[in-house]
Design a protein around this nucleic acid. Structure first.
Lengths: 204, 204
DNA sequence: GTCTAAAGCTAATCAAATTAGCCATACTTG
DNA sequence: CAAGTATGGCTAATTTGATTAGCTTTAGAC
């Protein structure tokens, strides 16, 4: 009986492709093994178990996502970087819903978990996109978190089928990014009244 | 041996309390039964299985969430309604992370699934909050989706521990809501350039 | 006071992940 | 090139947890 020549990376890739097709909640060792033309226990020679496998999918996903965003915003800044980066993110998630779900479910196992690096790569991309705007340093962190929130929230809702039967999701997405873009351009502008804090707008 | 006097609702409540404590991914029939002082198979007299139970938790969660928001925005409108509704949402999710996760994982089983009503109740609350702003009818849907995106995204990231070790999450949240509020107030104002669409700002 | 539907229980079944232990393969080294 | 060894993959066994079968007893209806 010939050997399959598997590796941890190969198993992870196969599993990632699987969850993109059938959904992350359908991940199973049996399905992965079948897809690789191998018996289930063989997988344990490459990954320690299903938990480990899911974790590896998450790391793969975040690194691929970070790559996609980096490529999209190459050299651009401000409005254009925001628009392209956001679109790249959304495109990635739509193409790979399963591995994105895996990434959402994953939790770092320790301080030196490679998942942390992968997540940071994505966040760094968002931060790079914000550099084009003249944002008060005190507000940088808030703007960055808003960006994460919006992009993650949209991707998450879309993958989960939250926007049911709607055909104009694309319009809503571009509208939303426009909204953010305009707001960011005015973040350093004249103060008005604040919704939650009596002090003023966009305080830190 | 006396009877426990269970009911589908009681089982669901117990399970919801459980997942809020140990996390939705730790939901198990055994743990729920133990908490109710009953043997595992007894639960099947009230729910058809673990899938059904998770679904019921989701419905409970969304209805409770909708109630909390409704109470928070009682009679208010515009900026104030936005601020209070958003806070109510976040407070609920922080207090009940497990059932919120259940709601995220749930998917309607059909057109008359009560989960749909529950979800709609929440969305209706967001819509009510927007009524205070003078938003172009064509843009209402986009603004509503943005609101969903932001509130879900923030709650989701926070529950998942996405903002690690940060102490000023509250500040970021209020900042973000302020940002949205200001943008919404200007949505009907003078046009500028658009990030993604050549036509103009905030188009439908 | 019986009678019946439903609640809980024990015991059995099933599915899926995981572990144990065996054998063949493919490098490695003399 | 042959022998040695670590590793990949397999079959068989174990474990855990959900689910089902079938029995027994309770609690409300008549």
């Amino acid at each position: 009986m010939p050997r399959a020549g598997l590796t941890a990376a190969a198993v992870t890739e196969a599993a990632a492709a699987l969850v993109d097709e059938v959904g992350f909640d359908q991940l199973g060792m049996g399905l992965v093994a079948e897809r690789l033309g191998v018996k289930t226990p063989s997988l344990y020679k490459h990954v320690t178990g299903q938990t480990d496998l899911a974790h590896r999918i998450a790391i793969l996903a975040m690194n691929q996502c970070a790559d996609a965003i980096r490529d999209a915003i190459q050299g651009r800044a401000g409005t254009e970087a925001l628009a392209r980066g956001a679109q790249a993110m959304r495109t990635f998630v739509k193409a790979h819903p399963g591995r994105y779900a895996a990434a959402n479910a994953a939790r770092p196992t320790g301080p030196d978990d490679p998942l942390i690096d992968a997540l940071n790569r994505v966040v760094d991309s968002w931060a790079a996109m914000l550099h084009g705007y003249r944002i008060d340093p005190d507000q940088q962190i808030h703007a960055l978190r808003m960006l994460r929130t919006v992009l993650h929230g949209f991707a998450s809702l879309e993958v989960a089928g939250g926007f049911q039967f709607a055909t104009d999701i694309d319009d809503s997405f571009t509208w939303m990014i426009d909204f953010i873009d305009h707001g960011l351009q005015e973040t350093t502008a004249t103060p008005t009244t604040s919704a939650l804090s009596p002090a003023g707008p966009h305080r830190a």
